[in-house]
Write a protein that binds this DNA or RNA. Structure first.
Lengths: 338, 338
DNA sequence: GGGCATTATGACACCGGTGTCAGGATTAGA
DNA sequence: TCTAATCCTGACACCGGTGTCATAATGCCC
């Protein structure tokens, strides 16, 4: 036998037609029990596997999802944001559980990204994952909607389509962080991250943080804020610039753990003790968080559930079922840094 | 226009046959310049994308690779070994560069793993990635070879087929680690990892380590070795058991960074100072390594090159070109832990 | 034993491309 | 003007399944 076996080969050995083989292998009740068994046996013997291309072509669906991962534009080639890697893991698992394959593709957020996995029938739907400048994405989202492409996003909200978004309750997470600092009498707070609406997740985290402080009568001083994207480097430099400008604070809320880790490095360098002089709270609960010194207090997002929800919601969209907008509850993980 | 456009739709609008459309879109020199341009324009206008299933079915290749990731059996659901995640990132990028898509699938090493991506024509070849009990894998490898499945492995050697393996020079890495410790006058060494041949990578690391010590007239005391799989937990417990048995040493070589991190935790708990009392060296150079306290000295594997080599070698196999066995040079990264 | 429902199977069109082959149109050369 | 070469295009089989329809075989009931 050269090449892979086809259903015709099985048909030949089983002495039935190819149609019957196809039905038998899919356990159609139309075929006789005995025939079905014979076909299955021969298939196993020949190591036959259904040709997915032929099958997908005929049925017009691929039982495959595509994951587009947008990188922080400045991030190092070999290092990917651990939070997204964790999501990647849970999404992969969720797909497997649902019997779907997963195509993974990295995309640079700035460049024109490709979302032709559905158009080319390679995938039934698309998951978009990444921190990014989502303002730039809206035209693309619009195109996808026009083409009736099935997709869901992590974090990013698509204009008028809240059902396409799964994300952590970033606003609530920001409130948690503020509440924790207040409870520890740290009310002179700095914020590192992007508080503009270009980065809706960071923006929401900051809003929650600010609002919670306000309910306690504390205002956030704008001078104690610095912009950073979600990398250690960026957090480090933003914090250094605050220190260099002689800005004082006794607490620091970072929009992500990577930023927090960079911030702690900058603080240590300036001989500012964490948590004694400055308490630091991050966001994401990436694996590294518990290993750094001091262990990082952070707002945890449950990536396992998040991945599941993304996949589940996408499958609902594909099946044209009703989809609810999804907000996941954040959890405070108090560690040594605060 | 309902549904996706097909080449027939374009043919209709362009007033040519579908064959010509197909040729034009693939820039065949057989079609007239002007016709080609017209076809391309219409295709763009209709947002036409070649149906990959039809195309793959006809050409009998998928321009897709499959990545099977074997997990440490005991590892936590949501946490994946960061070293492999880093590999995943570089493999994805390498695939993209070569114009291939990547299917990702997690497999549990113990269970019967599925490698039917090639049989079902979903992928042209398979990349196997993971620390695992490779002894168990040999029968599976044999089956894959018999079926002429194209595959490459990270780390694992397939009987009589060194060309199917890409890995770091683990033996050389072990020597580097030993050399570094010797240079720092730390010769009373413990080893945490699996020194059996069930785990060929760890085994090679240990052999290199042992041999380098031997060339300096130092023997490794078997009592100062403890088994561990590549998790923080496992490293922690293995180290604790050494301490509990009152084993003394002034250096510790861990077969992986995760093990090293667990070992450092155990040492700290026992009030053993790192690096003053015990110098610790890990292996992999995962991202966390530089953030822990003290920063971990480790043997770095270049995951970017590794991912590229895996993809390149697999593509050579697929194209039936000559493939060389590939050993990547390890590099010592000296940090605070030694 | 004729009529009819039930069961099991085969023939065949179809999914949307790709590759081969044949042939028409155009141009060059004699 | 006729032949040959070149260029371009269309018709068609094919990849390997799936789904529909037709039909043969069997069993049941009156």
């Amino acid at each position: 036998m050269k090449g892979k076996a086809t259903s015709f080969d099985i048909a030949h050995y089983a002495g039935v037609s190819q149609s019957t083989v196809s039905r038998a292998l899919r356990n159609s009740p139309l075929v006789n029990e005995e025939t079905r068994k014979r076909v299955h046996d021969i298939a196993k013997q020949l190591n036959y596997k259904v040709d997915k291309n032929a099958s997908n072509l005929r049925t017009q669906q691929s039982s495959t999802l595509a994951l587009l991962l947008f990188e922080d534009p400045t991030s190092d080639e070999s290092q990917i944001n651990p939070f997204f890697l964790s999501m990647l893991g849970s999404i992969t698992r969720a797909c497997a559980k649902e019997g779907y394959d997963l195509l993974v593709s990295f995309q640079s957020a700035s460049a024109d990204w490709q979302a032709d996995y559905e158009d080319s029938h390679r995938a039934d739907g698309i998951i978009l994952l990444g921190y990014g400048d989502y303002i730039d994405f809206q035209p693309k989202f619009k195109t996808l909607l026009e083409q009736n492409t099935k997709f869901v996003c992590w974090g990013a909200t698509v204009d008028n389509r809240p059902d396409l978004t799964v994300c952590c309750d970033n606003y609530g997470g920001g409130k948690l962080a503020a509440g924790h600092l207040i409870a520890n009498n740290r009310t002179d707070c700095a914020f590192i991250g992007d508080a503009s609406d270009h980065s809706p997740e960071f923006f929401a985290r900051f809003q929650g943080f600010k609002d919670e402080l306000l309910t306690h009568g504390i205002a956030v001083n704008e001078r104690k804020m610095a912009n950073a994207i979600s990398t250690e480097e960026s957090g480090y430099h933003a914090t250094r610039s605050l220190i260099a400008n002689n800005i004082k604070f006794n607490a620091l809320f970072a929009a992500s753990d990577l930023i927090a880790i960079g911030a702690i490095r900058a603080l240590k360098e300036a001989n500012i003790n964490v948590p004694n002089d400055v308490a630091v709270v991050g966001f994401d609960n990436i694996a590294i968080a518990s290993y750094i010194n001091p262990p990082l207090t952070t707002i945890a997002q449950d990536t396992t559930v998040a991945g599941q929800m993304l996949v589940e919601n996408l499958l609902k969209l594909i099946r044209e079922e009703d989809v609810q907008s999804t907000l996941l509850p954040p959890v405070l993980i108090a560690r040594g840094s605060s």
